[in-house]
Amino acid sequence: MKPDYILIVGQGRSGTNWLLDLLDLSSETHCRNEGDQLATSPLAQLPSPKVRKPLGDRFGQQWGERFGEVEAMTVDESELWYWCYASETIHSVGEGRSNYVRVIYEDLSTDSLEITKHLYQKCHLPWTKEIEAEVAKSASRANKIATAWYKKLEPE
């Protein structure tokens, strides 16, 4: 059975738009960056595009122990804290499920063909030579982008 939709989640500059472009190469897909902007989207049918779940005391204790007092953090530190929380939470919920695939940008950039082919299989999309050629073409600069941050780090 083909999925009606897939959800791709990531932070800014995480490669989610590139991944959408790779999936949109199929004639059977209609990829959009903001799912709640499509009238037929399940997200558009919610009372609000943002679904909030109370965090509770456990959240503050668990994450406070790891990252310290949020109010005392700089904006950059709190963004990193949020990114870590969101990424780990999404992964912990998805891990072990047959319909969950974790894609890390650095992995996608170094093994674009195999990872994209795997995603196409998971979504029951046809894989063609034309799609393969487009994936290879789009991946030509990706590795350079994915590893650029390593070069900016100061030696320890």
Score class of each variant (00 low, 15 high):
7 L>N: 05
65 E>Q: 07
72 A>G: 03
84 C>D: 12
88 E>K: 10
139 A>G: 13
129 K>A: 11
133 A>H: 09
112 S>R: 04
134 E>K: 13
87 S>A: 13
144 K>V: 05
109 S>K: 06
114 E>C: 07
63 W>S: 06
83 W>N: 09
130 E>N: 09
111 D>T: 01
5 Y>V: 10
42 P>F: 04
33 N>P: 08
28 E>Q: 11
49 P>S: 03
57 D>Y: 01
141 R>V: 06
115 I>Q: 11
115 I>A: 08
124 H>S: 15
107 D>F: 08
31 C>L: 04
17 N>L: 10
26 S>W: 10
15 G>D: 15
62 Q>P: 01
91 H>N: 12
23 L>I: 14
46 L>S: 02
130 E>S: 10
63 W>V: 02
59 F>S: 02
115 I>V: 13
142 A>H: 07
149 W>S: 00
80 L>Y: 12
99 N>R: 00
154 E>R: 05
63 W>A: 05
40 T>H: 15
95 E>R: 01
81 W>C: 03
54 P>T: 07
77 E>I: 02
147 T>Q: 07
86 A>Y: 03
144 K>A: 14
44 A>P: 06
108 L>Y: 04
136 A>W: 14
81 W>N: 07
106 E>D: 11
67 F>D: 03
17 N>H: 10
152 K>P: 08
76 D>R: 11
149 W>Q: 01
31 C>K: 06
126 P>W: 01
137 K>V: 11
75 V>P: 07
108 L>K: 00
66 R>Q: 11
109 S>Q: 09
42 P>I: 08
73 M>V: 10
126 P>A: 01
114 E>K: 11
72 A>P: 03
103 V>D: 14
28 E>M: 05
15 G>E: 15
